[in-house]
């Protein structure tokens, strides 16, 4: 089904692209061949070329972090839509640590531990707020987490446009660069940030948690039938809070890793909606940690492929967003349709 969905998205996008490539005086064959060529480029670079694939991996890291965090909540049917905000809070806290609190530290290891913990703590706080409100006041976590996204994004905007703006940054809304000790090492000849290792370790760890621990069993119980969980004596309030806390902490740590490993400075809009794309990734990965990593790689590749389209085929960013929208739409639509059985009746056969 997902394959069909992607083909459908490619087909529809093909129509858009063909129209885009049409030039006066040239036939539709020309536009079609340009479209096919562009598709070839879009697939071969992120997945068929080593350096392209490195880029894919780099893009996948923040997606996977947030996606893994969201899984924890979604498995218990707690709808955390706040991955984006939790990611931003993590990035904010990391920057605070790296530039202002621990900037004199020389040990990269200690620095990494401290800064990533800061990110995790602030991401966790961003999860704790809706969790406590849900557990004790029965507020809807969807609304609260969604709204907190804006708080986090604008908070970061405020800092980078204001207090934290780099005096040596020619007036751009950026913080200063992280000190050398606050940069994570890179792997694969410096092509991929080490966050990849963290993601894989985290996914394996979560897989273990779900398969073998009492936490995993209880969260499965809560997710499947909350009445049965209450009946089995599971403390729902505690689990609600812990789930959102862990969910936020992982997204926050993801934000910190993204800062330390890739960006080295805080800037507005550093995330092109990773936190929202991660929602889809979590579902397409069937809330299964390893599955999330695999789907995140595909989506990372999609992002990289889209950049190719933009750079080499001058496809406007708007069309790129159309394409991403189409992919999500057809994947979700495909999921929904596959739950039905389609049958044809002869006319008048009622």
């Amino acid at each position: 089904m997902p394959v069909l969905s992607i083909l459908f998205a490619l087909f529809v996008m093909g129509i858009f692209l063909t129209v885009f490539f049409m030039e006066p005086g040239r036939g539709i064959r020309f536009a079609l061949s340009r479209t096919l060529e562009a598709y070839g480029e879009m697939l071969s670079w992120p997945f068929g070329n080593l350096y392209g694939f490195y880029e894919t991996l780099n893009k996948m890291i923040p997606l996977a972090f947030v996606g893994l965090g969201l899984c924890i909540a979604y498995r218990m049917r707690i709808w955390n839509i706040g991955g984006e905000g939790q990611l931003y809070m993590g990035a904010f806290a990391a920057t605070w640590g790296a530039l202002f609190l621990f900037n004199d530290l020389q040990s990269p290891l200690l620095m990494a531990c401290l800064v990533i913990s800061m990110g995790a703590v602030f991401g966790a706080i961003w999860g704790l707020i809706p969790a406590v409100m849900k557990a004790f006041a029965k507020t809807d976590e969807i609304v609260v987490t969604l709204m907190l996204n804006y708080v986090a994004i604008f908070w970061v905007d405020y800092l980078v446009y204001g207090r934290w703006r780099d005096p040596a940054g020619f007036g751009f809304p950026l913080t200063a660069e992280y000190p050398a000790a606050a940069r994570l090492p890179r792997i694969f000849d410096g092509n991929v940030q080490i966050g990849l290792v963290f993601v894989v370790v985290l996914a394996v760890f979560l897989e273990y948690v779900y398969r073998r621990t009492s936490w995993g069993q209880k969260s499965a119980l809560i997710g499947d039938n909350i009445q049965a969980a209450i009946y089995a004596g599971v403390n729902i309030k505690l689990f609600t809070i812990l789930a959102l806390l862990a969910s936020g902490a992982i997204a926050g740590a993801g934000g910190a890793v993204q800062m330390m490993g890739a960006q080295h400075r805080l800037q507005p809009g550093f995330s092109p909606g990773y936190g929202y794309t991660a929602i889809i990734i979590a579902w397409l990965g069937k809330l299964n940690p390893i599955g999330v990593v695999v789907v995140a790689i595909l989506f990372g590749g999609l992002l990289v492929g889209n950049e190719q389209l933009q750079m080499f085929y001058r496809v406007p960013i708007a069309l790129v967003y159309v394409f991403q929208g189409l992919v999500l739409f057809s994947l979700l639509g495909g999921e929904a349709i596959s739950r039905y059985r389609i049958r044809f009746h002869k006319r008048g056969d009622e």
Binding site: Q217, A220, D224, N225, A228, Y231, G233
Partner: peptide, 20 residues
């Protein structure tokens, strides 16, 4: 609605209270 979790296995349902 309460006594079992429909999507969990028979085994998981049999041992839903085992932690206690």
């Amino acid at each position: 609605g309460m006594a079992i979790s429909p999507n969990l296995s028979v085994e998981e349902n049999l041992f839903a209270k085992n932690y206690a």
